[in-house]
Every structure is written in structure tokens, then in C-alpha cells.
Design a binder for these strands. Sequence first.
DNA 1: GCCGTTTTCGGCCCGACTGTTTTCAGTCG
Length: 597
Amino acid sequence: MKSIYGFTNLEIARLLRKVAAAYTILGENRFRVLAYESAATAIEHATSEAKDLWDDGKLEDIPGVGKNIADHLDELFRTGKVGHFEVVLKKMPPAMFNLLDLPGFGPKKAHKLVIELGINDPHNAINELKKAAKQHQIASLKNFGEKSEKDILEGIRLYELGQVKENRMSLVFADQLAEDLISYLKENAGEEILKIEKLGSLRRRVSTIGDVDLAIATRKPEEVLKIFTGYPRKKQIIERGPTGASLLISSGRQVDLRVCSPEDWGSMLQYFTGSKQHNIHLREWARQGGNSLSEYGIKSLKNGMIKQFSEEDIFYKYLGMEWIPPEIREDTGEIEAALGKKLPKLVELKEIRGDLQTHSNYNVEPSHDLGADTMESMLQVAKDLNYEYLAFSEHNPSVSNHSEEQIINILTARLAYIEHLRKSTNSIHILNLLEVDIDTKGILNLPKGAELLLDGCLASIHSNFNLGREEMTKRVIKGLSHPLVRIFAHPTGRLLGTREGYELDWETIFRFLLDNDKAIEINAYPNRLDLPDTLVREAIKRGVKLSLGTDAHNKEDLNLMRFGVSVARRGWSQASDIINTWDYDKILLWLKKRVRG
DNA sequence: GCCGTTTTCGGCCCGACTGTTTTCAGTCG
């Protein structure tokens, strides 16, 4: 049965959290509450849309979703609502759910304030709360005081500024911020720093980062913290304790530092790398074996003894599993794989032999951006990166300003120039590609004869992002069917923090790519990181090949490849999944293959 | 409500912080 109710995972997660909040107030069994919350988190982070799983009758494949919740969601997809949830939620004052978005608010606080202050209008709940706080109606309530009243106002202020959530920075930005801080610390406290490492989502290489977290192993924590809090770019010290400190720095971002003794380094690194879901699952596992985990080590539940770990890999080994690379610590099967000693050997940057999407300033008169640097200067950087080959893939000549003949002339001249460079450059190979728009009808503007002037093409969407899922899928498939196309570039079209991608039927796209031996790109450009990691994993599960490209528009951008590798690793990719790991002869042969879909 | 080294019954992650309290509840990561 096909549903007409296309609830997104995020919407479902929010619904389940509302039910959990209501159950909390109703005094339900706390483990039932926990079950709803963990199901919400699992669905929010699932690699497939719950709706698609429902279509296939596989909702219960999501860990934390059992028969009960699956039945409720079945009703949701069939009828658009869940009778049982409606009954439960109706017992609550509706305005309380609107307060849950405020920092420091859980179900109990939200419920109590809504009742005590008589807040009735859900759409105006936060404003009414603000008014009450300003009139000092909150401090006099039992279990509240002056401070909590002030905290509530501050929370509302942050919420209104949009700083509560989703004000995340790009991985690349966060990484640079961390690197700057690390060099400052090494310069000024180098002697005291025994080990230093990034933590949290930054270490896991998530595509967007909230706070920057760092860890240092040292014998002199006070001295290190003193130097940290003296960072010249800080605006304010948010927190300072014996084991760590937090700074607000001038860009408005928060950075946290944790310090510990070298004996505790492994445990601490494990604990603060997360993810939260990974750690919860790991602790559940450890508990089965009679152990309890924390940032101080592994405690035996039998005798209360804590075993310390100076190295993280020994920590995992002690639990009977392989060391798990941070990038895949998301509780999506990595713990089971590590226990079975079946973790994939994730691809590494050094295995990448070339960049498959770059733009030089060679002028093919495109409608999109040209690159800023010459082919020669980009080749020099590529050589420094020890690449075996570099692809140039300028945008196609603009459609409206050129006749077919003119386009052929431009490409002929470009090929001649590349041939000239190939003769004078012997230490690196050049691949002659073009990035071509897929227009609204799925047509590529490549005149007859272009196939003789190019090694191959990337195809991508640059306009009309608003088509529906079905129409967009047809458009893409038609575009990819062109025999010259070998790679589907920045496939979702997302721009992090700016634009959601368009919708595609991924099952159909993946099958097409597999059947026609075409590859899908992981675009390493900072605000793209597209294909996203979750879809990377889906792609390689089906055997679809990946192509890595920086989309460099100047020679410095060629250094962004490591972020593409991070995405690949988060998607569980091995070298064998990625065509950039092939040598020049193999990749050239593959690019020149002509497959009409 | 979920789930399975032992367990289809009987468990269910850990510690810190904060603000309000006289010993703890709520929230967070």
C-alpha cells in the first residue's frame, strides 16, 4: 500500500519525543519513556527514510523500534495520525511542547510553567513565558528562584537569536579553528603537552560542527589551562574547572578543552569522541559483561575496581572488539562489526591518486564560474600532493551564447591546449573532462562530435531545483543516460546551512548507476560534502562506485580532498569502492567507456 | 516499550552540573 503521508524522519522523531514528554508527565514507566526517546533518536539518525522502510515492511529494522512503535507508525503512514498518540497528547496542555525547544527545558519544567503561569496559546507560549519572567512571576514559584528566572530569559534570548541549535559551522571552518588553537597551544605550552587531539563531532568528521572540542594529556593541567584561557582570540571565558575550560572566541564560537593525565588518555578520548548513541550502545554491551564505562576507565561491577587506559585501542580490545575508527562511531552497526572482527578497512587519503573534479581558468565561456588559476599552476599543486593524475572539468560552454559549431571549436582548442600540456608535463597525467549541466528536460548541451574531444563528463544539476521527486529523478536519469557521462556530480545539490537538496528516488538512481557502470561523486567542497555520508553507505552497499572531487576553483582548493575522504570514511568506504584509487591507465580506460543508459 | 554473550523475563548508560534544596530533581552531553 502506498502512503500519501510523507512524514520525514525528523517529523516522526519530534512526534515520538512529544509522546515521551507526555508519558514523563503522566508518570509512565520511565523505561517506556526511554524507549520512545531512543526510537526518536534512532529514526532521526537512520540512514533511510522511515517511510521507505515502511513501504518495504522493514520499520522494525531500525534499532529501538519494536512491534508497538512500528504499529503506531504504520497507522501514521496509512491514516496521517496515530489514535493512541492523540489520546495521550490531549491530556497535556498543548503549549508545553512549544517550550521544549528552549535550552534547559525538559518535559517537567515546561509542563510546570505552562500550568502555573496559565499559558494557553501554543503559538504564543514563548512570548507569554518571557512576559511572566520579566514580571518576576517565576522566581516565586516553588523550586524556582532568581537565577532560574534569569536563565529562562537568557535562554529565550538565545532562542530568538536562532543560536539554540542548527547554528553549526562547516567541518572545514571548525577544523581550521581547531588547528589555529592547536598551534597556539603547542607554541606556548609545547613542553607540557604530551598528547593533543580533537574530540567529539570534529574527530568523527561530521559535516557540520557545533562546538570545537580538544583534549590534552599533561602532567601540569593548571598550567595548560592557564595558557588556554589566555588565548588572544578569546572573547570570554565561559567556564573554568580543574579538568577543563570553555572559551567564547571572537568569531562567536565556543571551544572546549579537556585535560587529563596520560594514564587516562585512552578512556577520555573514547568517552568524549562519542557519538552519544555509540557510547550508550557500548556501555550497554559492557554492562552485559559486568563492566561499567566512563571517562575514567572501565569499572568492574563485581569489585568496583577501575581499570585505566592510556590508549584508546586497548580500551576497545578490553571489551573484546577491534578499535573502531571515530568516523563510524554512530551506532549504525559498527559495534557488532568490531565484535565480529569484521570492520571494513576504511579508505585513507594517501590511497587517493588524483582529483576528479577541478576548474582551471581556461576560458570555455561557461555560464557558471570559471576557476581562478591556470592549468599549469594547478598541476604544480597536484604534483606536490603526489597525485598521479589531475582532471580538469570546467563547466560546459554556456548554451544560449554558442552555436553547436562554436562549442566544438572551443572544445577542440581546449583539447589542443591539454595535449600541449601533456607533452610538456611528464610527472603527472591530465584527464580531460567537462562538468555539464543537466537541463530541466534532462538534456545535456553536448553537440555531436564532443565525444572525440573529451575523455568523459561529469553531469550535475545547477538550475530548477524545485521539481518534485519523480520528475527530478526522471530528469537526472535522462541526463546520466548520455553516453559521455561517467560521473553524477554533487548529487543531492545541497548547500550546507543554505539549501536543502532536491529530492530523488535514490533506489532508482543507484540501480541505474550500477547497471550502467557510472559513478557517483563525493564532492569535497566545504559547503557541499555531497553525496552525504549516509547515502554513501547506501551507494556502496549496492556496489555503486564513488568518485572523489574537490570541485576546486583555485589551486589552494585542491587541498580539500581530505574532507571528501572523511565523508567516504563516514560512509564505510574502502579503497576498492573509489575510482580515484585506480592507477592512470585504469581510470582513463574507464572514463573513456561509453555507456548509453 | 525494547531486547537478547547468560535473559522471551527482567533487566534497561554514566557522570557532571545547576539551582534549588537541606538530600535532590531535572537537564545535558
